[in-house]
Design a binder for these strands. Structure first.
Lengths: 137, 137
DNA sequence: TTCTCTGCAAACGCTTTGCACGGAT
DNA sequence: ATCCGTGCAAAGCGTTTGCAGAGAA
């Protein structure tokens, strides 16, 4: 399951991103922690093994990954952004109680909409809000 | 088309919101400007006729309306929030070039999804990104 | 050398908070 | 007299920017 540093390096280079030590580590973190982490979470965790790591670098790297479409940025409600490595079509469910974000499969092509005939749609985002099964009681 | 202050007052009271002068004005602005305005836009416009109005009051009022489900808060990408008085189910299209937000009709029940059987879904949000028909050239 | 990356500190922009005044009940 | 709404100023918080030093090409 663990992806080697060599492979990560290759993946980054395929996206025209120079594989620095920090970038590889952040990429690896995202692949191993598919919980839509915040910058804070990434920084806190990686800071333990890389004491000189700065938040600026985390921000820089994530913005770089975003531009290269390696991650998707999730921003709900104006709270801190969360980063999602899974680029396949899926919906997000945000629990209003525990703030967890759950992925769920969607059939994006089943959605019927209109009035966008002359528009170029690049990205379709779907998110639900409510209470997750743990918080529903 | 214009809604009288009397009716606005009534609508607010129905939602357990005391109809102060500022609240009525902001409510009226939202009803007359269905362009998903920002706090800045609301403040700038109303400030002209109410020089003592403060942004704090605009924020306070919009948060109040949000809690009462009179408006929906739209927050994409961490830029400033936008406020939508239209509470019917519809999608939002955000143009990456001109930043305009377009409403479009959706058939929310046509969307197929799974894995949320035990979840309580309170809100379904759909937004697309891309280029609008004016910016596509 | 030259160009890029990193990381500290400061700035930034939107939003919230603290608090005192004034109006309504 | 008490409660609530308003609005100024300040703080808060996530994020970006400026810049200098380190490192890679």
């Amino acid at each position: 399951m663990e992806i080697s540093a060599k492979e990560l390096r290759k993946k980054l280079e395929e996206n025209n991103i120079r594989p620095s030590f920090q970038r590889i580590k952040i990429f690896q973190y995202l692949l191993n922690n598919r919980c839509h982490p915040t910058v804070e979470m990434i920084y806190d965790e990686l800071h333990k093994e890389m004491p000189t790591l700065s938040k600026t670098t985390v921000y820089n790297t994530l913005n770089l990954f975003d531009k290269a479409n390696l991650v998707r940025v999730l921003s709900f409600d104006g709270v801190e952004s969360r980063y999602d490595i899974n680029t396949k079509d899926h919906g997000h469910f945000i629990c209003e109680s525990c703030s967890n974000i759950y992925d769920f499969p969607i059939d994006i092509n089943s959605l019927r909409f209109s009035q966008l005939e002359d528009f170029e749609i690049k990205e379709k985002n779907i998110y639900f809000k409510g209470l997750c099964n743990k918080c529903i009681n």
